[in-house]
Amino acid sequence: MSQQATVTHAEVTSRITRRFEALKQQNRAALVTFVTAGDPDTATSQAILDGLPAAGADIIELGMPFTDPMADGPSIQKAAQRALKAGQDQHKTLDMVRRFREHDQDTPIVLMGYYNPIYRFGVDAFLREARDVGVDGLIVVDLPPEHDSELCLPAAEYGLNFIRLATPTTNDARLPKVLENTSGFLYYVSVAGVTGAGSASSEAVERAVARLQLHSRLPVAVGFGIKTSEQAADVARAADGVVVGSALVNCIEQAATREDAIRAVHALTAELAEGVRGARHTG
């Protein structure tokens, strides 16, 4: 492998960094919401995406659907299948971000998914287009730091944050490697498992966040298994961000109509936002 250059956090001053700094001033955590692009169809998904900031999302993770989402649980798998069946592809996902940016210049958007659709698109072409439409960061689940030269380092050259997952299996010996080229924030997966699985106790989350903060100045967002406003509030006391995905995606699956889907996602987002915003005042 070629020698890998290290990206210092200072080189990238992104929407993501600005958003976390602003929230720190307000002494509250960020609500990070995940939905799959194109679920249940591109137009409905666009309406969901466009309304998330007003509903209370501080940062948006937009899933790029993939046929074989190995690290995801049933909820997000099914969301990807619905999206693909409705004809979603990488071009449409990037176009959703472009449309979103026509009316929102401040809310960070992170594209999340798996490497193959990006690889097939062409790494350079994808990064250029992602930057041009207003994407701020990438989370690519199946690219560990061992493969930073594939996408992480090229992404930095385009000014895109590369957000990495740390997990309960990431020990102290490995953590520096995981953190090395990570920028924007660190996504702590609170349980070993797939998305949507049961959540960790607040004590375990607190300990984990404290450990990560010893090694890094990056904001730490915590996810996996957070479904209610109360759980969100618990995590928001310890972490810099609270990630909710499966619970929002479930709203789409359970909705009878497209209008219901939009309404339900925004309603749950508002509830979660209330939990996150009140966490450090009532805790």
Binding site: A71, H147, R164, T167, T170
Partner: peptide, 12 residues
């Protein structure tokens, strides 16, 4: 080839 897996699996 390579090791294109989620971070949870890398230590294993």
């Amino acid at each position: 080839g390579g090791q294109f897996v989620a971070e949870t699996l890398m230590p294993l």
